[in-house]
Design a protein around this nucleic acid. Structure first.
Lengths: 211, 211
DNA sequence: GTCTATAGACCGATAGAC
DNA sequence: GTCTATCGGTCTATAGAC
């Protein structure tokens, strides 16, 4: 790995722990064994390092969602593509369960994902753009996806009738909530993972048309 | 209001916007029209101001919950007091709805509550204590309360059978989620308030034994 | 209890040698 | 592309006059 990438990695590590203002250029340079002056040969300012991390995380986040078969909201494309229809209509309740648990486990165990999530959490009020990014990534992305899935599941009578949007919120919001506890108190990881599993099972018991 | 209280108020305002590290003593002193040296006649350090705000907020938060008839989790008292039993057994679905909406409206419209919540949100990873406080206040307090209520509602057959804990999560987590959007993007306040109301109604339609 | 002045440390960023 | 040295500024906190 080249120096430029190593700087990004260390900066993210520091920003996610101490925040932008709490992290100095020395904090980033020292663990890498270089002087802080060297940082300026790769980035023109501290702000630029932060922005590049945000930019890169956006790309990587989309890649992860793609890999986990979740679609990121894209305002430039209002209609569903053929690909989306195929994905949404083939889903089962079990498939959705598995999808969510895979997503949670990856999000919580992948160090990069954890750090980005922490950094965005403590930076969400820094400016409007970061706040919107937080909402888009950690709320709307999953909520919009789940909503379309529930629409399909209701149509195909796999689950009971109701508003897809409300189903999506009831299904996904507890997952975010437990992930929050997990992030703040990592020793409660097992408890949270169990609670998420219980919740997902309970949700389908409540909403499924099968008994 | 005396100077000491004015300092607390201004400091909270600044901390909630720019975080602890992003706020300087001058940032606090200047809007009050005093010099930063004067701050040290009232508090021995910046850290002490922060800690006093946290302490005071804990007291005020308990007062608010008391006023809104929500009980704060207290580990020193494992058994329910007589007072708790009375509160929990007299609840109706409508009462719970109203309770939640009152809680949400107060939390979101009260400037002090907003500022404390923002400050804790961006400080939650600063140390273990703050993280635990965040969970206790914004997750466990309501969740534990709701769990006991649902226990009662299930016993009295007002709502369908199920795990009270899961009900509590499904009921309350979407409320936190929408409050988060509301905090980050205040212009979506109406949309969030509506979504919370819809969610609460939908929840009782799904779980109520009456049609 | 307020001020001005300042100590002493650290900050982000740059200059210039190699 | 790395270093050392340093600039100009800001930071927390204190000293001492009033």
């Amino acid at each position: 790995m080249n120096t430029k990438e190593m700087i990004m990695e260390e900066a993210l590590k520091q920003f996610s722990r101490k925040g932008y203002d709490g992290t100095s250029m020395s904090d980033i340079a020292e663990p890498l064994g270089i002087s802080k002056a060297a940082l300026y040969k790769h980035y023109k300012s501290k702000q630029e390092i932060f922005e590049k991390i945000i930019e890169e995380s956006e790309v990587k986040y989309k890649e992860v969602l793609e890999k986990l078969s979740v679609h990121y909201p894209d305002n430039s494309r209002k209609k569903l593509s053929k690909n989306d229809v195929d994905v949404y209509s083939d889903i089962s309740a079990e498939g959705l369960c598995k999808n969510v648990l895979t997503f949670v486990r990856f999000s919580m165990n992948d160090e990069y994902s954890r750090q980005v999530r922490r950094m965005l959490t403590i930076s969400q009020f820094q400016n409007r753009e970061l706040g919107e990014m937080y909402t888009r990534r950690y709320v709307d992305a999953m909520l919009g996806y789940d909503e379309k899935l529930f629409e399909q599941l209701i149509k195909s009578a796999v689950i009971k009738k109701g508003k897809p949007k409300s189903f999506a919120a009831m299904f996904y919001a507890p997952v975010i909530m437990y992930m929050g506890i997990w992030d703040r108190e990592p020793e409660r990881a097992r408890e949270c993972e169990k609670a998420i599993k219980d919740h997902v099972e309970q949700f389908f018991m409540m909403t499924s048309n099968r008994k």
